[in-house]
Write a protein that binds this DNA or RNA. Structure first.
Lengths: 294, 294
DNA sequence: CGTATGTTTCTTATGTATAAAAAACGAGGG
DNA sequence: CCCTCGTTTTTTATACATAAGAAACATACG
């Protein structure tokens, strides 16, 4: 049966939300909370009931009042707030990347389901979605084959990435000053400089910034297929580097500097510089990935 | 419970296979048949048993003998040889393209399952796989949204297609004479000329030839993401034009001539001609699609 | 011993069940 | 009438069940 991860996530979020109110304050309506927590009213009511039961809030004639800041209420642990399908993604990635599964390995739905402790339906659904990442292949009336997280995979991935990214980057040259994207570019530069200043402590934050940076570049010429491909890149980098920490700090610092160079090139509107900076970064990222695979 | 479409398909194939034997001939071993029919031995045995029951073949001490050509045995109808998941694809495409679903329409798994007369699991699985075609989008804990088979969709599709196809086509210029692909190119030209000669009768065969032609061009630089994108193109064209027959004959004849021009350009090894022919064809294909959508 | 068939076991394709979440419906109160 | 809240209905996420199909094992025969 369905897990109540949505409720638990909303419950945790509600704790944070309550911190922004003063003790004794009247809470917003269920509908307002629904919008803020991003869940249905049904779930909001469940959270409210749960909070009431713990005495954090009390129902009055005219609505609900927060009694006190929920200091000692326990949050639900992170794992319990993730839908089973998301947990399966992590489990699978771990199996694939950490256990170093060999190219050509047969993937068995039933076996994975047992190993991960979930229903076969979920594994099946995950594999169907995962297919688009190009790492597995289905065989008629039989299981799947793992094609391997290989150098070849990396090369094919970067071949497409280069096509897509060069196309977007070049478009910046002809973007008018008035385009709102320049503001975002400046903000992006600031975020990079900030991270760079504190690189020793925060180098792990780079992965997410990286993804945001490349997605921003892609937005100049919106295309659903390009966006979908960004998901492929994001998931590969996210999980691969999560379990592959060699030279992480250096690697990220280099990438940040390359990003900054590209930002400068974009702002210069000079096609040649843009080309050069973009290609330099992609080449470097590709080599880094290849080195970590070999 | 699982349907026996695999058996029915194998049964039909077996009828064709038996036609190639003489009456009284001894049949190949179960294992040999398995390889020829492309199914498991379990299914082969089921087919053999079924054929025996109908008296077409008899078991002897030393194997099986075909008694007579299976003239009056009835084949299973085509629909019964398609897995439910494939039928759902057709049903969904029909709903989307023929019923002209509006952009923004909410897709309801349960409702579709009822409408198509299948289990919700299947619909869910289909939608997950179908997501990669860029026509639907999932919303957290809710259904899906149909983004519409719109002009925008066509434009984004062709933008990627042009990038991919120009890349491949250009590579032909530097391909050595010795490459085995030239032979395939010549065969492809022959197939086109043949179809052109008989265009009035066979113009419906173009769709499949078209797909093969573009896939052939892509094989010069194999890339799983490009290949996967060919599936997108193939499915879109296959279904869209299946229910959109306006000017079909003319449309296909034009495309064949464009293909022939491109083949000639490829063989010339002249980058400029290749570029020109390739772009001309893609532009024309795009305009045709756009016209049929509007 | 290698190949062909009979038998058993395991996996996949598909249907059904159900708790959780979302959405729709309804009734009061400003 | 619009908003808020209580209630009912519908849908989704997940588990489980089972026939069809694949694969592994076993036996027999040349």
């Amino acid at each position: 049966m369905r897990t109540d991860t949505t409720f638990k996530r909303a419950f945790n979020d509600m704790i944070d939300l309550l911190r922004t109110f003063d003790p004794g304050a009247e809470l917003p309506s269920e509908n307002a909370l629904r919008a803020q927590l991003g869940v249905s009213r049904t779930t909001v009511r469940k959270v409210l009931a749960s909070m009431s039961a713990r005495g954090v809030i009390v129902s009055e004639a005219h609505g609900r009042i927060m009694r006190e800041h929920p200091q000692q209420i326990e949050r639900y642990p992170k794992e319990e707030t993730l839908a089973i399908s998301q947990q399966v993604e992590t489990s699978f990635m771990e199996w694939m990347l950490r256990d170093n599964a060999c190219p050509g390995t047969e993937i068995n739905e039933a076996e994975l389901a047992r190993k991960f402790g979930v229903a076969t339906t979920i594994v099946r659904e995950f594999l169907n979605r995962f297919q688009k990442y190009g790492l597995i292949e289905k065989r008629q009336n039989a299981g799947w084959v793992f094609k391997g997280f290989t150098a070849n995979f990396a090369l094919e991935l970067f071949e497409i990435r280069e096509m897509f990214e060069m196309r977007s980057a070049r478009l910046f040259a002809s973007l008018p000053d008035s385009s709102p994207i320049w503001k975002q570019v400046r903000a992006m530069r600031a975020a990079h400089l900030e991270l760079l200043a504190d690189i020793d402590a925060r180098f792990q934050d780079f992965s997410e910034l990286d993804s945001r940076f490349h997605r921003l570049i892609a937005t100049v010429a919106p295309n659903r297929f390009v966006e979908s491909f960004q998901d492929v890149i994001a998931i590969v980098f996210h999980y691969h580097y999560q379990w592959n920490k060699r030279d992480e700090r250096t690697r990220n610092e280099v990438a940040i500097r390359e990003h900054l160079a590209l930002i400068e090139a974009l702002e210069s509107r000079n096609i040649a510089s843009i080309d050069q900076a973009c290609r330099a970064h992609l080449t470097s990222a590709r080599e880094t990935l290849l080195r970590s695979i070999a």
